[in-house]
Write a protein that binds this DNA or RNA. Structure first.
Lengths: 68, 68
DNA sequence: CATATTTATACCCTTATGGGTACAAATATA
DNA sequence: TATATTTGTACCCATAAGGGTATAAATATG
């Protein structure tokens, strides 16, 4: 299901059988950023997250919280 | 429609008839941040965007790009 | 139209993100 | 199980995000 951004990216990356260093290079971000991102760090920059997501044809957008 | 995060927040804020200073205070972020956010600044921090969106019962998540 | 309110831009300053890198821990593979 | 690969954590440093604030521009209201 990949509820969080972190797990989404991790899953997508593994689907493509790409390592973190490779993903970082392709996305044009630092390796450390990719790692912090997949670890669920909240205080990341929106534009850099989107740089990574762009590799999967995705992007960040507003979603409504699902009712309990 | 509010395709972008910026317009989404701006529209939601106006729906509630709240000024930017009020929104900033309620969200616990700086006034300048709210303004840059509504102006479409890309390099904002994810956690702070979510702080603002939380006021509308929303949050940031991964979305798939719509086909052309 | 004049005035009040709201929003946008610019300034300085502090803080921490992100980059690079090295090494440890964990995982995969032979 | 030994080895190779991948991932996670820690370090220093430069840069810029974000806070506060003042002022100008834009908008709303009388």
């Amino acid at each position: 299901m990949s509820s969080t951004i972190a797990t989404f990216i991790k899953e997508k990356r593994k689907q493509l059988k790409v390592t973190q260093p490779e993903l970082a290079e392709r996305a044009g971000v630092g390796l450390r950023f990719v790692r912090e991102l997949e670890q669920g760090k909240q205080s990341v920059r929106l534009d850099k997250v989107n740089q990574v997501l762009a590799l999967f044809g995705s992007e960040l957008g507003v979603i409504q919280k699902t009712e309990a």
